[in-house]
């Protein structure tokens, strides 16, 4: 059996779903953020697989950009989490309900 685009896409889908599950099930802001990174990586894997199987490098350039933006996003997000922790002394989403009606 040859490994086709399908195999890579299924791995990507499963990885994305794992990340989504982490976002839904975990209650620690940092772990939720890590699960988001996992979802981003799953999308990257799909893009690289498409790039390979369509014989076109544009997908890889896209992944390159995504990785760069993700690095910037992680820095900003984590500094937001640190600022939040300074104000509220918690990193637990169930304690962050001040916007709840």
């Amino acid at each position: 059996m040859n490994v086709t685009l399908n195999h890579y896409l299924v791995v990507s889908v499963l990885l994305f779903c794992l990340g989504l599950f982490g976002v839904l099930a975990r209650r620690n802001v940092l772990v939720i953020y890590m699960s988001l990174e996992l979802m981003l990586n799953a999308a990257n894997l799909a893009l690289v697989a498409f790039s390979r199987f369509n014989n076109n490098l544009n997908g890889q350039v896209m992944v390159f950009f995504i990785i760069t933006v993700a690095a910037a996003e992680v820095a900003v997000g984590l500094s937001l989490i640190v600022a939040l922790y300074r104000k509220r002394q918690t990193a637990h989403v169930e304690d962050l309900t001040s916007l709840k009606l």
């Binding site: 690289v48 790039s51 369509n54 014989n55 076109n56 490098l57």
Partner: peptide, 16 residues
Amino acid sequence: LALKAGPLAEGDTAPL
């Protein structure tokens, strides 16, 4: 789903 024909695009540093 099959690999497209033609010269394969390698993700080396030079073409990228």
